[in-house]
Write a protein that binds this DNA or RNA. Structure first.
Lengths: 283, 283
DNA sequence: ATCGGTGATACCGCACAGGTATGACTCGGG
DNA sequence: CCCGAGTCATACCTGTGCGGTATCACCGAT
């Protein structure tokens, strides 16, 4: 199976629409149709169910979509890491660490400081990105190591070490009745009509889901909207250090505990990554 | 990057010889040369160092070899699992479990029996294979779940659960002076001229490494050679249940402890695999 | 100096990816 | 009830590029 065929199939399987998929791939629709049927013939397995004006995945198609995404990621990672290693060898070496913008900043600062003091340490480029993006950067080879947060990020297929576990707090505008309490439950927060949960853009297409909450695209926007009394959020308690006086954090006793982990691709043979992880575990 | 290019590169990187690699790939040498230089040009990175009569990997080439193998495995796994899912849907369903021939047979029997009694259990095809092969079967999609042994098998990139930990014993011919002891150290076993360690064929090319020990290709051969007083082996103590009277097992106190684990690919969404793992953990 | 063996280059033919035009079919609207 | 819009499939053409053969340039051993 060639990557081209697999890319084509993944596009169709995601769009469930040949013409749109062809447009996304930058080719015409007929060659795409042909490529897919050829793939089905070669595998000996029907992947798509073409019925009245709609395309759906067969069971086998669903499997190929999943496994195929992982395989394409691995191909991309191989290519990307090869390029990066050459660039590193050619001068300004370094590894790339990906982390969610605004999360675990204190821990990260300590880690980078400690690692920088190690003998043989290399330059660490920090890549801040939106939620759920770090994991992808790691899988596609654009990052060597990432700081993730269980259970929010998917760590399937990555090697991880746990660094820190903490509870979560509700961040509320000062003066709101709920902010006077000294602890809360999740049920207290789901149905607060005047503070609906904010909506983030979908990672896939950048559109916002429906709902009453305000649309946000960054952490600072969200904090400002809380200050303005328009929404609330639930976040790991370490975020307290970044809150202004006009925000109040109240522990949410039944929210899932959040574990900060350091993660890297399972086949990594990078010495700097190993050093960085060892340093992180000593903190 | 197309899988064809990557397959070509991996072949050359493994052989470090264009003509042999071309032969292995079933193509002529000139197209292979061209494909590799084209790959290097596309990546913008030299992968191979061609100097006086010898080909060596550059640092980038070594990375691409490693990452590329994983990527090719993932591609193969995607293809294989898709085929298998279709076959399973078409009638005789089932999952494939890979394990080393002759290892953990008791545990495996208990597991299969317990799983078979579960509601909703499917047929489990057991694939016995040589040492170090299970892992590959799992990575390339020919198996859904495997029973592996730490630290012998590499579990990087697989999800695992530990099932059982045990020490190791030396298996000796009855009557040999060492068999009279009630415990041994590894040092006692490395330099026993009359019982040199047996040699297994290499997984890569099937050739035997050099050495004084007898060549074997199966567990039963090895046991017979021990009976004949020609070699010895060190194995997990659970192998005792399969030994004849003319073999003696003596604990090796400083041999690494062996952990039997059940492993599956990290992206598995197979319900039967999850059930099987859950059953295994209850044993 | 010669020969065997290395990888690179030159050239050719054919398979196949991709484009355009069009068909078969299904739905919705006038 | 038919027409038009929209779906994916088919037919045909074209050009790229993969693979093969022949050959070269280079190096080392004899």
């Amino acid at each position: 199976m060639e990557t081209r065929e697999l890319r084509y199939f993944v596009a169709v399987a995601e769009e469930l629409h040949f013409s749109r998929a062809a447009q996304r791939l930058g080719i015409a629709q007929p060659p795409l149709s042909r490529a897919i049927s050829q793939l089905e013939r070669r595998l000996g397995v029907p992947l798509l169910e073409r019925s009245n004006r709609s395309v759906t995945l067969t069971e086998a198609g669903a499997v190929l979509l999943h496994e195929g995404r992982a395989a394409l990621d691995a191909m991309e990672a191989a290519e990307e890491r090869t390029r990066r290693v050459a660039r590193a060898a050619a001068g300004q070496a370094g590894i790339v660490l990906a982390t969610k913008a605004g999360a675990s900043s204190e821990l990260l600062a300590k880690l980078l400081h400690a690692y920088g003091a190690e003998p043989g340490s290399v330059h660490v480029e920090v890549l801040l990105c939106g939620p759920g993006q770090q994991e992808r950067l790691l899988r596609t080879g654009r990052a060597d190591v990432a700081v993730l947060h269980h259970p929010f990020d998917d760590t399937a297929g990555l090697d991880v070490e746990e660094l820190h576990t903490e509870g979560q707090v509700a961040v509320l505008p000062a003066g709101h009745p709920l902010s006077a309490k000294d602890q809360l439950h999740l049920d207290d927060l789901t149905d607060v009509p005047e503070l609906p949960l904010a909506r983030w853009p979908s990672a896939a297409d950048g559109t916002y889901p429906d709902g009453p909450g305000p649309e946000v695209e960054s952490h600072s926007q969200l904090l400002q909207l809380i200050s303005l009394g328009r929404t609330l959020m639930v976040a790991p308690e370490s975020c307290r250090s970044q809150l202004h006086d006009d925000l109040v954090a109240v522990p949410v006793v039944d929210a899932p505990r959040v574990t900060t982990v350091i993660a890297w691709p399972p086949h990594s043979r990078s010495r700097p990554v190993a050093d960085l992880v060892r340093t992180a575990l000593r903190l």
